[in-house]
């Protein structure tokens, strides 16, 4: 399952949800990165007994996940940054990709929560719920993407 195919599938089923995943390497995000580090330090200082995240994929590279929707005329967005050990070449399958999908799902849940608290927009809630449900089961997501790819290919 190619990550690009999954993003295209998401755009097909939820065209009014913007999801962007990008490698955070530039200095323009320095302020956000510093804030993110500060929050982590604060968390570690105040919750010393908390479980450490010793995931095998943990590293110093940053990956940004942005989710935005417009519901009832208001813009809702979520920004997440996750520290991972990223390969030099982008991976399309494997545990790293699964972690990214899980992070996207968390961002979607957060936006869905904010939308439902602030406004009533059934179209946006439906699109967000569909994505959240799909990302709950990655095996099923892979199957659905394959079916969609086959169905959307022009007949030869």
């Amino acid at each position: 399952m190619l990550a690009l195919d999954v993003m295209r599938f998401f755009r097909h089923i939820a065209p009014h949800v913007a999801i962007s995943v990008s490698r955070n390497m530039d200095d323009r995000r320095a302020l956000l990165n510093a804030l993110s580090d500060q929050i982590s330090e604060h968390y570690e200082a105040n919750y010393p007994d908390g479980e450490e995240w010793d995931h095998p994929l943990a590293g110093d590279d940053r990956l940004d996940i942005h989710v935005s929707v417009i519901a009832s005329g208001c813009l809702f967005s979520s920004y997440n940054t996750i520290k991972l050990r990223l390969p030099s070449e982008p991976e399309t399958t494997g545990p790293l990709v699964d972690v990214v999908y899980k992070m996207i799902r968390l961002s979607l849940i957060r936006v869905r929560w904010e939308v439902s608290l602030a406004v009533e927009d059934s179209l946006m809630c439906c699109q967000l719920d569909r994505l959240i449900d799909l990302l709950a089961n990655l095996d099923q997501l892979r199957q659905e993407v394959e079916v969609w790819k086959r169905a959307s290919q022009p007949e030869s």
Binding site: I70, A71, S72, G73, C74, L75, D121, L123, M124
Partner: peptide
């Protein structure tokens, strides 16, 4: 009113 008739456009 505009937000009601065009909920996916943020003004």
């Amino acid at each position: 009113y505009l937000a009601k008739i065009a909920p996916q456009v943020a003004i």
